[in-house]
Computed example of a mutant assay.
Amino acid sequence: MITSSKRSLLTYLVHATVLFLVVIWTIPTAGLFISSIRDKDQLSVSGWWTALSTSEQQLVTRANDPSKQIQVGDKFVIQGNLFEGAPGAVTFFGFSSLEPAAFTAGSVAALRNDQTLQVMENGDYEFSSPTEWKGSRGQRIFYSAEVPPRFTLDNYREVLGTEGLGKSFLNSLTVTIPATIIPILVAAFAAYALAWMRFPGRALLVAAVVGLLVVPLQMSLIPLLKSYNLIGDFFGVGSKTYVGIWLAHTGFGLPLAIYLLRNYIAGLPREIIESARVDGASDFDIFRKIVLPLSFPALASFAIFQFLWVWNDLLIAMVFLGNNADQLVLTGQLRELLGSRGGNWEILTASAFITIIVPLCVFFSLQRFLVRGLLAGSVK
């Protein structure tokens, strides 16, 4: 009973810890999504956790163009609504930045030259003057308002259209999909050979693969780029192409892919392989009909890691593709937005969520194979 009680307590502790980690990782993602669909005025004055509550904002706007004034009796009047049809309630208003909340909603503020301003609680305003209004711009109105939550998809429309994120999104897919598939194909053949085929130097090759796992990526970038440029000049191919970045990501991803897949494939039941050979199956038939279907968990595990790595990469993309707007990937476009639109939170949050939505879909679609593939491919 004591052992069972301790085991139950440990189980609850493990579940509580996992739940805590899930919540810790989910909260920032939820906050990013909520911020990306909020109205930009509300996002600039309050946090995402207040998105479902009414917020009080200090705002300023200009009245309608004086050319739209109308004459009512002996007065010239400019009318409009501060909210332009959106919900909200004005509490205070003013006509000077020194006293932006000098008057309560519904009262009449006296301006110069016998002019008046009245702002109602629903946002309706009226400028009145005994003489015709002059100038090309409307008068400024400062006001405090309680604005209910407003959600919109305009942020996504802006970043996908005018900010060029749609093109960068396609560029990232163009880079990531081949850079994930190619190393998986190459590594699967290599892993089968290292696991089940007898040839001289196999142990040395396995040791070399393990050694390449600890080589820093930054150390190989310059010699790799020089070699690629020499080959490109020899064949008359430009250096800033998708082929270059596909090959670069393939080279950087192969050691981990071969290591994981080789250990997984080596752990498959020997009886199945030997039975297939007795029946006359070639190595290619065994690989295609037996090993590949049984190795799907390991393939999915590496696909998740490789996809996330390539999708979130900036360094290799800058080296092998450059800053050309036609080939700029999502991470590069986000860097540009941070420099030019760093104060526009609605742009940055929408861009960031577009960046993470594809990796999230990939992870959740393959996550059931992740732990099984990693455990089977790492403990041999």
Rank of each mutant, 00 (worst) to 15 (best):
L10V: 04
S35H: 09
D39M: 05
G47R: 11
W48K: 04
T50A: 14
L52M: 12
R62Q: 14
P66G: 12
I70V: 14
V72W: 02
G85W: 08
G88V: 06
A89Q: 15
S96A: 10
E99S: 14
E99R: 15
A105V: 05
G106V: 09
R112Y: 09
Q115R: 13
Q118C: 11
G123M: 09
G123Y: 03
F127L: 11
W133M: 11
R137Y: 13
S144P: 01
A145P: 10
P149R: 03
R150S: 08
L153A: 14
G161I: 10
G164Y: 01
N171H: 02
N171V: 13
S172G: 04
L173V: 09
V186T: 10
A188T: 15
R198A: 14
R202S: 07
V210T: 11
L212V: 00
K226M: 13
G236F: 03
T241F: 02
T241P: 06
Y242C: 05
Y242S: 04
V243M: 06
I245C: 10
L256K: 02
L261N: 03
A266M: 08
P269F: 09
R277M: 09
D283I: 01
F284E: 11
P293I: 00
F296C: 01
Q306K: 11
V310N: 07
W311K: 00
W311M: 01
L314I: 07
L315N: 10
G332H: 06
L334A: 04
G342E: 07
G343I: 03
N344F: 06
E346W: 13
T349R: 05
V358M: 07
